[in-house]
Design a protein around this nucleic acid. Structure first.
Lengths: 348, 348
DNA sequence: GGAAGTAGGGAATACGTATTACCACGTTCT
DNA sequence: AGAACGTGGTAATACGTATTCCCTACTTCC
């Protein structure tokens, strides 16, 4: 199990090479104590020669603070996750923190991974996949670390959750359909108990109900393109009087598959209008031209990292107590990207 | 800068709570020394009560071995990178290592990030983006750490490179076109000096030349869908006598954009056959049905991690000295996925 | 010219854990 | 019964760095 015990140089080696004490080597690299510029220069050169640089582990131990952030993620198969992770990594890097990644195949693994993350004494944990059980959330926060959940509940009073304003997105989609005069509304939802997709569907349904329209909801366990294609088949099998003329897919993957399933059978947006969610790159490709919502990833990451760094004195844009049951929730407004599948005045 | 100095519990606290020495607490968690099962149980319970678990940093320091792997990555915008990273993270996790991610926006940043990675005394570095300069590679390997490059050269005698057999893929594509009787061949290449795309293009050209065919190569700086679409426009503007009837795109992103650019103007594969590389999820979507090469990611990751863990006694499948100038190169065979755009007997 | 102050640098210690050396005690074998 | 041995545990030390406290020598000011 144990590897090399001492192959690498230490600050003492550098000290010896530069004819100074080890303390000075440390000072040369941290810039904390008093040191003459000339000797500092000499030490840096000696370190270069020896091929040494500060051991981040030892440094973290003595300062009692490791510049690490744990990030819980999962398979990057749905593209959206890749978009999130990409910008998250960039934001973390710009904050001069190091992301330690934990890959959770299932929600059940999250607990164990959180424990491992705690073991590294990271500044905190960013959860982009899975569910954080309340007692685990408490364990993290009670130790003074932070907990940030992305598009999911933090499950703790002092937890922090950054999310798109999902209900608002749903309401906006419904509003657009109603303005177009659509009558029979359908939602392609996520799994039972999911957070973001359910809130999108709820917002949509609520706005539709207020306008006196009924809404059908079809839940999907995977939210994949395959699921979207299956929904298209299900729709085509319906008696024509019951067929929806407007569909709100709670993510783009489903919307794209749905479009493919309808291709050749229905005209879009003539027969059926469609709105997605996420604005994946593929949404603007020629065969799709999908009207969808862009989540303000830049803003979300900014707010997230701000909280990470203890700047949690943020003014939450909107807090609402009852419905989403998450005190530390920051919601960012989604932006409608209008393309061909909905919202355009029907062109010749 | 400095955070909490001592908020968290230590093994001494646990020892006190369980009425034992600190050494026993350590033994209870590592299972290394002799300890009575009964007291071990008691200690574990005490730790649970105190809310303590081993400090991975301190542990790494004393054992002289941190179970960390540095991973250099970049923007996950081209989907392919997401596929790679996803499986890489999974493989690393299964190996009980922790991936420390470094995000490089440009090749120039890689040097600095490698230094940071060295600072964490990781077991080694996995490079999936950017270029490793030779002196940096040497710095890593001379310290006894490993260096693995994915689909790029390791730039060091003892470096290790896991890649698809890119030239083979190119040759296979050319062979398929030739069997179909295609006459005018075009390659959508990558940037000047790129590694994998260039090898694919070279393999293709070489096989074509052996059969007496000429090959045009169009280089693309970004290899994005937009670049592919631009190439389609360029092709359509050509005099019809010069228009290619077979195109090998060195990645799927370009192939997909190329298809979109041709849509409505040319019939595929009647007028033009097309082969891509990577087998992105979108390649099998209804509007594309792209014939392409799947890279054996599972195998690549397995070999990669095997090397990471010091099992570098691997028998390289194929080593070739001269052409690719990389002694520790492992090449895995790409797999042709035949769909509509090439290789099918043209169906009614 | 002496006193006060300051800059530069060294010795020692702490961080939290794993591990080695060592000790006490009970067991087994002759 | 005495010796050899195994078991369960403790004290002390090392890992590599940051930091505190202290000392020396040099500057500056009256």
């Amino acid at each position: 199990m144990a590897r090399r015990k001492s192959g690498t140089a230490t600050s003492h080696d550098v000290a010896r090479a530069a004819n100074v004490s080890q303390a000075l080597v440390s000072r040369a690299f941290t810039g904390n104590g008093r040191i003459a510029p000339k000797t500092r220069e000499r030490i840096l050169k000696a370190a270069e020669a020896v091929g040494w640089q500060p051991n981040a582990l030892a440094r973290s131990m003595v300062t009692g603070d490791a510049p690490l952030v744990a990030v819980i993620t999962t398979r990057l198969n749905f593209d959206w996750r890749a978009q999130v992770l990409s910008r998250l990594l960039k934001a973390i890097q710009e904050w001069h923190l190091k992301p330690l990644l934990f890959y959770a195949e299932s929600d059940a693994e999250v607990d164990r991974l959180l424990d491992e993350a705690l073991g590294w004494r990271a500044r905190g944990v960013i959860v982009t996949a899975g569910v954080v059980r309340e007692n685990r959330a408490a364990a993290i926060i009670d130790k003074g670390q932070f907990l940030v959940a992305l598009n999911r509940p933090a499950n703790h009073d002092k937890g922090f959750s950054v999310a798109t304003d999902n209900p608002l997105g749903g309401r906006m989609a419904a509003k657009l359909f109603l303005e177009e005069g659509r009558q029979r509304l359908l939602v392609l939802g996520g799994p039972q108990g999911s957070w973001a997709p359910s809130l999108r569907a709820e917002g949509f349904s609520q706005a539709a109900h207020e306008a006196g329209r009924q809404v059908a909801v079809w839940n999907n366990d995977t939210m994949s393109t395959e699921a979207g294609r299956a929904c298209a088949g299900r729709l085509l099998a319906l008696p024509s009087a019951q067929q929806p003329d407007a569909v709100f897919a709670t993510n783009d993957a489903m919307a794209l598959g749905f479009l493919d399933g309808l291709r050749g059978h229905r005209s879009i947006p003539g027969d059926i209008a469609l709105i997605g969610f996420d604005n994946l790159p593929a949404a603007e490709w020629a065969p799709y031209r999908l009207t969808t919502f862009e989540q303000p990833l830049e803003e979300m990451m900014r707010r997230l990292v701000a909280h990470v760094d203890g700047h949690s004195e943020e003014q939450p844009l909107q807090r609402n107590g009852a419905r989403e049951q998450c005190p530390g929730l920051i919601r960012c407004k989604p932006k409608l990207i209008t393309r061909m599948t909905a919202g355009k005045t029907e062109c010749p």
